[in-house]
Simulated assay, not measured.
Amino acid sequence: MRAASGSLFGLAYGDSLGKPTEFQEYASIVARYGPGGPRQLVGEPALVTDDTQMALAVGEALLEVGADVTPAALEPVLRRRFLAWAASPENDRAPGMTCLRAIGLLADGRPWTRATQADSKGCGANMRVTPVGLVPGLTDDQRAGVAQFQAALTHGHPTGLAASELTAYACLWLRNGLAPADLLAALRDRCSAQRKVYRGDWLGELWQRPTVTSPEDFIARGWDECAAALDRVEAALAKGDHAGDPCLATGAGWIAEEALATALYCYLISPHDPVTVVGRGAASSGDSDSIACLAGAFAGASLGLSAWPDEWQTQIEYADRLFRLGGAWD
């Protein structure tokens, strides 16, 4: 089945299809591609955005540290790989300003808690977290800690942390055989169970803000906002009519919980048709590449690499790096 490869390639495929539609109005997208959005990769190679580039940075950091998945081991590796991405000449795909600001501060060696953008919950927190859900052998505490930590290096808002954990666990559960129809309930249960769990061994004193009274109250805000976003997905699916701009139903995706919600919505409309999933994610008026890349990661985790068109594997940018990670984790 090669589910890890399916998810990683699905992320890149969605990212590439959403690259030209980001910042476009829905009517303009439909006029060019139809309501199903783009359904063919374009270019040799088909270029991706910073979403895939940063997901590769996270995945390759995890591959580098191997079994030593601790904050002390992972932080310098993630820092180094984020800095390398920021300095790369290939970092020319309209990268997010939050990531660039935070990484610029990381570059001078300061503690990451002083570099992170404390009030940002932009989708850059969870667009890159898919590998955390796919790497095998982690305990639940490690996986949740890494998912939040990789977000926290740049995006310090509790909702960015919670949305990243949910995104990683959606990929994990789908890879392990969870039925798509059961995914929303599982994510809601995770919100409830983790609502007051602050992972201090990974996050340190990140919670300390002028108006926050405890670490539990800090993280609960993130889980509550994510739970509300999942409610919107459930309501949108229940309407039955899924035509039109998905961003009108579940949010534009510029912030973490909306990127998760709209990606889930696009995925759960047609979970057994991955090309339709990523096309629909790309046919959105908001952060189209991030929405489509997360939707593609979900579809690929569930259906595996063979569900995607074979010819896309040799067309997509960074195929060699995607194969390396997928091969290590399949």
Rank of each mutant, 00 (worst) to 15 (best):
residue 2 R to A: 15
residue 20 P to S: 06
residue 145 G to V: 06
residue 58 V to F: 01
residue 209 R to F: 01
residue 89 P to Y: 13
residue 253 G to P: 04
residue 127 M to V: 07
residue 203 L to P: 04
residue 1 M to N: 15
residue 317 E to H: 09
residue 32 R to D: 12
residue 189 D to S: 15
residue 255 I to A: 05
residue 226 C to K: 12
residue 231 D to G: 03
residue 237 L to F: 13
residue 35 P to Y: 02
residue 12 A to D: 01
residue 126 N to G: 08
residue 34 G to L: 05
residue 233 V to C: 05
residue 319 A to T: 14
residue 253 G to F: 01
residue 177 G to S: 07
residue 248 L to W: 00
residue 305 L to R: 13
residue 135 V to I: 08
residue 165 E to S: 14
residue 247 C to L: 03
residue 148 Q to P: 03
residue 256 A to I: 04
residue 246 P to R: 04
residue 324 R to G: 08
residue 174 L to A: 14
residue 15 D to A: 09
residue 23 F to R: 06
residue 60 E to F: 05
residue 311 E to Y: 13
residue 219 I to R: 04
residue 85 W to Q: 12
residue 84 A to M: 03
residue 87 A to T: 09
residue 177 G to P: 06
residue 237 L to K: 10
residue 252 A to T: 01
residue 281 G to M: 06
residue 203 L to N: 09
residue 144 A to W: 00
residue 34 G to E: 12
residue 197 V to C: 08
residue 325 L to N: 11
residue 226 C to L: 07
residue 8 L to P: 07
residue 235 A to V: 14
residue 137 G to L: 03
residue 101 R to V: 11
residue 254 W to K: 06
residue 133 G to Y: 04
residue 166 L to G: 00
residue 45 P to G: 08
residue 84 A to C: 08
residue 295 A to F: 11
residue 25 E to Y: 12
residue 143 R to T: 09
residue 92 D to L: 11
residue 183 L to Y: 05
residue 297 A to H: 14
residue 244 G to C: 13
residue 70 T to E: 13
residue 266 C to K: 05
residue 297 A to L: 05
residue 73 A to E: 12
residue 284 S to M: 00
residue 213 T to R: 07
residue 78 L to I: 11
residue 310 D to P: 09
residue 302 S to E: 11
residue 237 L to W: 13
residue 220 A to H: 05
residue 76 P to R: 07
residue 57 A to Y: 02
residue 8 L to E: 14
residue 281 G to K: 13
residue 22 E to A: 11
residue 275 V to M: 11
residue 79 R to N: 08
residue 163 A to K: 02
residue 187 L to K: 03
